[in-house]
Design a binder for these strands. Sequence first.
DNA 1: GCGACAG
DNA 2: ATCTTGTCGC
Length: 262
Amino acid sequence: MLSEEEKQVKSYPEAATTSSVEIQNWIEAQDLLKKKLIKEDEFEGDSLKYVGGVDISFLKEDSSVACGTLVVLNLQTLQVVYEDFSLVTVQVPYVPGFLAFREAPVLLELLERMKKRDPHLYPQLLLVDGNGILHPRGFGLASHLGVLANLPTIGIGKNLHHVDGLTHSGVRRLLSESKNNDSVVTLRGTSGCIWGVAMRSTVDSLKPIYISIGHRVSLDTAIRIVKSTCKFRVPEPIRQADIRSREYLRKFQMGMSKRETS
DNA sequence: GCGACAG
DNA sequence: ATCTTGTCGC
């Protein structure tokens, strides 16, 4: 006969690796960093020339092997002017609401490396694959990264993180009910808080992306900038980071299998 | 109690 | 996140 404790471990394997104590530490860290969060424009919009994008891909065979990627694009031409990769092993599991503790370390390392290596192209603003304040405690990966790197950031979600009564079907309803032909709807939660917007980023994409303030950027500015980078549904900086990240892992895997075969 | 839950 | 080619349409 299993004890109640054993039943829990067997039913929820992730609970064995992420203790409630660790979660509490994470919550405290988020609440502490959140005090430094700035939700208004705090950068020179005129000098906005380079926009960064970050993403992480994981190996299918060994999901602890990951490739963090930083790209920088010229905002005018949307051409990639810088790219860098970091192959790492990630032990921290994915826990909804705590993505930053899994992904931020690699991305911060890439930003630091670039600041030393190529400060001339260092981005004035960063688009992050993950939410900003659209988060259970108002402090998602984009905000986390922005505060730690002291860099203006915008959060981009490809799926809705259910917060404050916001639901997938609710957003669909908002978009279909939108008065004119507006592709952008405000995400106002049950509490009255505004968490960000859902936006159909191209004319033919039914599925929206979710934009939220990361750090040192207002929501209106965030929307404007994201719009200007959307050749496809996913904003180009993030899309390029994603594409190149996967390509890097694919080539890495080819090198690995070559070694096994010989 | 049940389901939902960024990447 | 990851699995994954062809295929439908402009």
